[in-house]
Nucleic acid binder design. Structure first.
Lengths: 313, 313
DNA sequence: GACGCTTACGTTCGTCGTAACTATT
DNA sequence: AATAGTTACGACGAACGTAAGCGTC
């Protein structure tokens, strides 16, 4: 048994049981991969892949178990490399963050500025995507950490740590009557054309839920995946906007009026997502703590090791 | 990086940093081990071991991290082998149980009889030891599962699953006055010479606690590690015995009188201990469920994966 | 007939073990 | 002086790549 064999079966499984493709991806020859796989199967005394004649057509039941363990081993090898990098060159390295627009634009800038000041030698990269994409980037190693609000619970191999809670506000053109409603109600909001986030983004699900709970059918005329688009169209008076509170800045957004709407919606929790059992470089812990001060190294470690999710909050 | 290297550093660390000894244990040459370790260190870019001249004297800080991960990888390789064995030969294999006297003698016999009937092809072995030894047998792979009551909480790499609760009784010669005390009190018990379990065995800690809680100083004239010894000396009227309730059998123990004492002591919980993230053969799940019916495969798997300990009960 | 996996074979690279050497206690 | 680890070197074996063969779609 050796590591190559584990890499091979993993890649073959990942590539839809196509050995040739896997071989290419691993920069080696197809017969080599084929042979190593058979060898592993012989050694373990089981078939990992089901074959129709010569073609691989499925993963057997023991194969699934083997693949699951193999994957864990490969992740751990990654972790070993990480440990090496960490100590060989403390403070030097890279940090890849996958996140959504709202976080990247309105929440992270100050955190990142502080982080870059403290770790000038860390190459930071920011990948933007949907909450789902963001999680998958972490799973496949493209990113080290994910930051998002939605759709982020259903990955077995991710640990999700709550960072902060936030709620929404209503924005409209400065003299819009909605700004003078007191008290502000969902019914009042539902009377106007609405502009807000796309489904699956930035807590949109809780917006839907609130209206649904009162039997209201909001007239969403435009759904965007980012706050800036929403603001732009609200400025043009296409409708009123439901915006994440942190996306409104009285100085920048002088052309918009704003009223708090926290009492109308459940608050959303933004979370950090990490690969389970990952080994993190020291500066990653620092970044996390910079973003969510209650997430100390101790707490993060505990969550990474066990399954305990909602530590803190 | 390869698996040998991980095996080497693990064995060297385990053997007190003695490379020659590790080489012997791994049936290979000392220079080979030495070289592979250096190679791994070079590849990772760190020192795993601290050297004084040529001698290894300590594990460095990164070394600790590396060793921890390496160990996990090696365990996973073990698991792979297990998966192979399981599917290659379902129902054939071995099961090694590490436990203490009380369990082996009074609780397990019926469980094991049923198990052997159902899995005649499984070679069963029973290892007896102190609770601490029992846990260590599981950690180093000598045993698959540990069953014990005491001192079983403080191993990070073990998952402990509660199986059943039990309490104590008092045994004495048939006409002993303690048998007629009503209600039975700790004060009454403390008046007589006592025979009970050794510290660190069979819930002794809770016996101490009960007396201490009432400010009593029991006169323990003999502490044994097994129930049979206790009974024997109680028969000889050297004192009265505090015994695990399940160790008294009215038919076998006709020469002893017994009274319940559950109301005097906290009840103890006997637990099964498993290595975290172990891959278990199907019959092991069956054995566990035979012993503690609430510990279904689902529950055991959940506990093995995460850290969640006291599932059930 | 095109694509995809396996078998066969020669080359290469890596690992292992022996022996000689050096450092530590 | 003895014990323990490193360096050096030669031999073996395992893995790889190329080329040809066979099955499946």
């Amino acid at each position: 048994m050796n590591l190559q064999q584990l890499r091979y079966i993993h890649e073959v499984a990942r590539r839809g049981l196509n050995v040739s493709e896997a071989a290419d991806a691993l920069f080696t020859s197809q017969p080599g991969v084929s042979k190593q796989i058979r060898q592993l199967e012989t050694e373990l005394g089981i078939e990992i892949f089901e074959r129709h004649g010569k073609r691989l057509v499925a993963v057997t039941q023991p194969g699934r178990a083997v693949l699951a363990i193999a994957e864990r081993v490969l992740r751990d090898l990654d972790n070993l490399q990480q440990v090496g990098d960490e100590f060989a060159n403390e403070g030097v390295g890279s940090l890849s963050i996958a996140t959504t627009h709202t976080q990247a634009r309105y929440v992270l800038p100050s955190v990142i500025r502080d982080f870059m000041r403290r770790y000038p030698q860390v190459k930071l990269s920011l990948h933007q995507g949907s909450p789902r994409q963001v999680c998958e980037m972490v799973l496949d190693g493209t990113a080290d950490i994910a930051i998002a609000t939605e759709a982020i619970a259903d990955y077995d191999d991710l640990v999700m740590l709550p960072c902060y809670q936030w709620n929404r506000c209503i924005v409209a053109t400065p003299r819009h009557p909605i700004l003078r409603e007191a008290p502000l109600t969902l019914e009042a909001i539902a009377r106007y054309p609405l502009i807000t986030y796309d489904d699956a983004f930035t807590g949109r699900s809780l917006i839907n839920k609130a209206f649904l709970g009162r039997g209201l059918k909001p007239n969403v005329v435009l759904s965007a995946i980012d706050s800036d688009v929403i603001k732009k169209y609200v400025e043009m008076d296409l409708g009123i906007g439901i915006l994440a509170r942190m996306a409104y800045n009285p100085e920048e957004d002088r052309r918009l009026g704003m009223v708090e709407a926290s009492h109308l919606f459940e608050s959303s929790t933004t979370r950090i997502g990490l690969r389970k059992r990952a080994w993190l470089r020291a500066y990653i812990y620092a970044f996390i703590e910079g973003f969510a001060p209650h997430l100390t190294r101790r707490i993060v470690d505990a969550a990474l090791a066990g399954g305990g999710t909602d530590a803190g909050l």
